[in-house]
């Protein structure tokens, strides 16, 4: 029998459908009780992300369709999601879909957040031709989690999941 975790792990992100919620790192836990009820915990990428409700509804629908009658979806705000939670598999899928994955930030320093008066010089490879010569076109993109860049070699614009 397929477990609730396996079913929940297959549910796709509504705004980045190449990724599952597990790839994106927003699926925090799935616990199944002996009476068959399931509690799923998800975390928002951005506070105002309008897709969060859809994620919960999709999870509920998939689990109910698989025979789980009692499904509760909880939200965890803390610890806060970061792009470091996107799995290696998720990064590979983004790349294949023509979306540059975020670089890994590692643990963040505590204390005052440093001000960046120029865009941070990250090495973002073009997902089409792998050129490192890419530039930021817009710091905000079609969804809260993406920025828009352009490749100086193949000239194609592409989306980049920005690091937070």
């Amino acid at each position: 029998m397929t477990t609730a975790l396996e079913i929940a792990s297959r549910v796709r992100d509504p705004e980045l459908p190449v990724l599952t919620l597990a790839d994106l790192g927003v699926l925090r836990s799935v616990s199944e009780s002996s009476d068959g009820s399931v509690v799923v915990t998800i975390t928002p990428t951005y506070t105002g992300c309008p897709a969060l409700d859809e994620m919960g509804a999709d999870l509920r629908r998939s689990l109910v369709a698989a025979g789980y009658s009692s499904v509760e979806v909880r939200t965890a705000l803390s610890p806060a999601w970061t792009t470091d939670w996107i799995t290696d598999e998720g990064r590979r899928k983004l790349q294949e879909a023509g979306i540059a994955p975020p670089s890994k930030l590692g643990p963040q320093a505590v204390g005052p957040v440093p001000l960046n008066l120029t865009p941070p010089s990250r090495r973002v490879l073009c997902p089409r031709c792998s050129s490192p010569r890419t530039e930021e076109v817009s710091r905000f993109g079609s969804t809260a989690c993406k920025a828009l860049r352009r490749c100086a070699d193949c000239l194609e614009p592409f989306e980049h999941v920005k690091e937070i």
């Binding site: 506070t47 705000l77 803390s78 806060a80 960046n116 008066l117 865009p119 905000f140 920005k162 937070i164």
Partner: peptide
């Protein structure tokens, strides 16, 4: 709840501040 909202919002606000500063 306030602590969690702050932790979540911090990176968003840092991005907003950088945008305005630039």
């Amino acid at each position: 709840v306030l602590a969690a909202i702050a932790e979540k919002g911090l990176k968003e606000l840092a991005y907003h501040r950088d945008h305005a500063a630039q």
